[in-house]
């Protein structure tokens, strides 16, 4: 059986907010290491990779690997019924037809349980290799969110080029062009999460659909910083670390100029 108790139930809401615009269903894999999900959007352009490590839960028990196929839209509806301060317990049997969600208020004066039907999902699982990135950019997540929103107001595709001087985001649309350069500022008085850091072994440049990048920024409440990893001619990875718990990562295939 599987049973996991999470003290910060609000975290589950944030995780679901970060994926609900991209996928409508997914297999949550329960394993002794933790709860994970890998799923592609319907057009197979982007991939979500979530890991919530077992150590991050107050109580975690998983005897064997259990795939838990869930409709994300319905899951969002159920988790919305939890208070953001509630303690959430997720429970299911080894071959589950249902998953139980138990919500306990912080003061222990309200307990709710919800049972949700599971579904069999035939999804493609991709082997994403561990990659050494040619360029890694760490920046405040709110700044990346703002930047993607601003770029999307001008164009559909953003070109991201990373050099040791900084990261340049450029887009072109019917009304004109926009360029925003973010420079590394590691020596200032900023707190670590306010800094922009760039590590590169060689300059990288590629174009990406802003519609997807904008969806990825729905993960902003999960982390004060975001990390972009790029390798020439490979998908970009956009990673939001979840403190003491794991991560939400997005992979997005590049656009190729015709």
């Amino acid at each position: 059986m599987f049973e996991a108790r999470l003290l910060q139930g609000g975290l589950l809401k944030k995780v679901l907010d970060s994926i609900k615009d991209i996928i409508t269903e997914g297999n949550f894999d329960c394993s002794p290491n933790g709860l994970s999900l890998q799923a592609m959007d319907s057009s197979h352009v982007s991939l979500i990779d979530i890991l919530l490590e077992s150590e991050g839960f107050e109580h975690y028990r998983c005897d064997r690997n259990i795939p838990m196929g869930l409709n994300i839209t319905n899951l969002v509806k159920m988790i919305k019924c939890a208070g953001s301060e509630d303690i959430v317990t997720i429970k299911c049997e080894d071959k589950p037809d249902n998953v139980t969600f138990l919500f306990e208020s912080k003061d222990n004066d309200k307990i709710s349980d919800f049972e949700m039907k599971t579904m069999t999902i035939d999804d493609e699982h991709l082997l994403v290799p561990d990659q050494t990135y040619t360029a890694v950019v760490k920046m405040p997540s709110a700044e990346f969110q703002r930047l993607c929103r601003d770029m999307a107001a001008i164009g559909d595709t953003v070109n991201i080029s990373v050099t040791k001087e900084g990261v340049r985001f450029s887009t072109t649309g019917d009304m004109g062009t926009a360029n925003i350069t973010v420079r590394p500022n590691p020596s200032g008085d900023q707190k670590e999460e306010e800094r922009t850091e760039v590590q590169i072994t060689e300059p990288v440049s590629a174009g990406f659909a802003l519609r997807y990048l904008n969806s990825f920024t729905k993960a902003t409440p999960l982390s004060p910083t975001v990390t972009l990893g790029m390798v020439p001619n490979l998908p970009i990875v956009v990673e939001y670390k979840i403190a003491d718990m794991g991560h939400v990562r997005y992979y997005l295939a590049p656009k190729i100029e015709d």
Binding site: L126, G207, A209, P235, Y251, A253, K255, I256, E257, D258
Partner: peptide, 14 residues
Amino acid sequence: RFFQNHLSDYYMQD
């Protein structure tokens, strides 16, 4: 002007 690649162009199926 831009052609969108798919992830299966880069990663193998598990």
